[in-house]
Computed example of a mutant assay.
Amino acid sequence: MIVLVPAWSPTSSLLLLLLLSPSLRGSPDCSFTHSPISSTFTSNIRKLSNYLLQDYPVTMASNLQDEDFCSALWRLVLAQRWMEQLKTVAGLDLQNLLEKVNTEIYFVTSCSFQPLPSCLRFVQTNISHLLQDTSEQLLALEPWITRRNFSRCLELQCQPDPPTLLPPRSPGALEGTEPPASQSYLLLLLLLLLPTALMVLAAIWCLCWLRTRRRLPHPRELVPPTPSPQDVLLVEC
């Protein structure tokens, strides 16, 4: 990647040193024999932060995998891309400040990172948060940059998505989703029990009918007896 900087500036000299010095460039397996992190990164980041609008909108990855020192390196990769993009829309003075910060983190381009994965999700934040995070990642990497081999960090990894929990279903919903085998079994059981249930109902009806018949008087008992002539005379008297 070619970085355009003002000719003969101190920043240009430092950038050229990082690009051409074999001791400072990352090897193909992404390791460093000499630290590419300078002692001036905090000062350069602070100067840029003081010059920029604190609420200038940028984006940061929200779901990078937390892989020890790989995560710090990945965040610097994304921050370096922002420095390159901001330089294209900044004035000359601001370009110089951006280039100084870009020089501090440009060493990440010496490792052959894979293209950004499609699973990365970005959230909007402001430039002050991005610069603060950049300073924190450099500080975290500084004591380990020459002791670690970062070859396993060449592909940015996303955090796995949390499992989707199904909402609880009501008993009615559970009954409505019974598999066909269970429904056939219940239908067969109902058909087997139906004749027995009908017989029981018929027996109960017969018993009730017999009990009712026993309580009712015979029709002949309901006709009053014909009075004799003597009874009629007694009544008339």
Rank of each mutant, 00 (worst) to 15 (best):
A173R: 13
Y51G: 04
S170G: 06
L98T: 07
W8M: 10
L131W: 03
L15N: 12
L138R: 05
P117I: 07
D231Q: 15
L234S: 09
P229T: 04
L120R: 01
P219E: 03
E142I: 05
E99L: 15
L207F: 11
V58Y: 03
P224V: 03
C208Y: 10
P28G: 06
V235F: 15
Y185C: 06
P195L: 09
C111R: 01
L94R: 08
T146D: 07
N96I: 12
E142P: 02
P224T: 03
P117K: 01
E142H: 13
N50W: 09
V108Y: 14
D93R: 10
L48S: 05
P167C: 05
P167L: 08
F150D: 01
V232Q: 10
K87G: 11
V89C: 07
P171G: 09
H34P: 01
A61W: 00
A61D: 00
L120M: 11
F150V: 05
S110T: 15
P195N: 07
P117L: 10
L131T: 03
R121Q: 05
P168S: 09
C119Y: 02
L116V: 02
W82P: 00
L233Q: 11
W209H: 07
E67F: 14
P6L: 04
P179Y: 08
G26R: 07
L97P: 00
S43P: 01
M60E: 01
T109N: 11
Q137K: 13
P160S: 11
W205Q: 11
T196M: 14
P225E: 04
R220Y: 00
I204W: 09
L166C: 07
L4Y: 13
L192F: 07
L192W: 04
L188Q: 15
T125S: 00
P195C: 06
L186I: 05
R169Q: 12
F69K: 07
P179K: 12
F41S: 10
P160T: 07
P219G: 04
T146M: 10
T88V: 10
F69Q: 09
E67Q: 13
G91F: 01
P162V: 04
A79R: 00
L64V: 01
L17Q: 11
G176P: 03
P225D: 04
P219H: 02
L166R: 14
L201M: 13
A7W: 12
L73M: 13
N44T: 12
W74L: 02
P143G: 05
L187T: 12
F107E: 04
D231H: 12
P225V: 05
F113G: 01
L130Y: 02
T164L: 14
L131M: 06
N44M: 08
C237M: 14
L53D: 15
L97D: 06
V89T: 15
L48V: 12
K100C: 09
L19Y: 12
S135R: 15
L198K: 10
V223W: 00
R46A: 14
L19E: 15
L120F: 01
L20N: 13
L186T: 10
S62W: 00
